[in-house]
Write a protein that binds this DNA or RNA. Sequence first.
DNA 1: CTCTGTTATGTTACATCACAACATAATCAA
DNA 2: TTGATTATGTTGTGATGTAACATAACAGAG
Lengths: 151, 151
Amino acid sequence: MSKLQRILSHAEQQCQINGSRLTDKRKKVLSGLLQSDRALSAYELVDYCNETYDENFAAMSVYRILEFLEQEQLVHKLNLANRYVACGHITCDHQHEVPQFLICTDCQSVKEFSISRSTLGSIKRQVEQANFHLVSEQIELNCLCKSCAAA
Amino acid sequence: MSKLQRILSHAEQQCQINGSRLTDKRKKVLSGLLQSDRALSAYELVDYCNETYDENFAAMSVYRILEFLEQEQLVHKLNLANRYVACGHITCDHQHEVPQFLICTDCQSVKEFSISRSTLGSIKRQVEQANFHLVSEQIELNCLCKSCAAA
DNA sequence: CTCTGTTATGTTACATCACAACATAATCAA
DNA sequence: TTGATTATGTTGTGATGTAACATAACAGAG
């Protein structure tokens, strides 16, 4: 059983537990993200699925499927790049911290990482001092990955 | 001389120093942002200018003008919201720190603020440990402002 | 002042993005 | 089997962002 297969079936089980279904189409979209080493836009996923599976995904469907996968915490939406990535921890069973993301502005590769609690805490404190309130701890940072920085 | 006037003429001087020109149209776009208490999209600015000045700005022009104003550091583009704000420090003469932004996801009001050097430093360190390199210290955070949080 | 290169703006056309609204199909539960 | 719920198909549209080319305004050299 390939790694991809394992992740997919794990995701399927998670959905069952949540009373939702990981349908064929949803699996295909998720696979697309899992097999990509970078963040993909909705329309890139449309193309990917149509080419790879010889299907006919409409953009609308992909948007809906992405929304679903997000709810199930199987993918993350990167607001800074308007792109999507598979969650890096699908096969983990524990509850995760809210992730932060490093996005390479050149090649769109993404690293899901965690800022230390204390740093996050001081960010939150400073935000509150400014009379705002953090909506989400999902912080996204524009970066260059190592190889793009070298070039 | 109104506050707006002062800011505009100061901006104009800055442009002259940089060997660029703050034309009439560019002034109008900048005024739009200066007078707004929230971040505006390019098309909102198109409408604003056309209504306020009875002109006929094309979207294309506004995009170009915004690009110019950004280069001159008179406005900032908020990638997270696809919107623009006037720089909060146009009239300051000293070099600024790179700003961070708190964006109210409800009303689009924006606060330009600065994370402490030490917090910023620890973010940068953690990013480097992850083998990425921060492209910009302009960090944008999705927030709720005080009044929207209350509602 | 005129010529010329540069910069700014006008205009048209188009590609992309995101989703609303409604129709049909598949699935589940009783 | 039937009715309710969920998933997908289909059509259309508003918003976004920009390329490509045309014209106009301006600044400096002669």
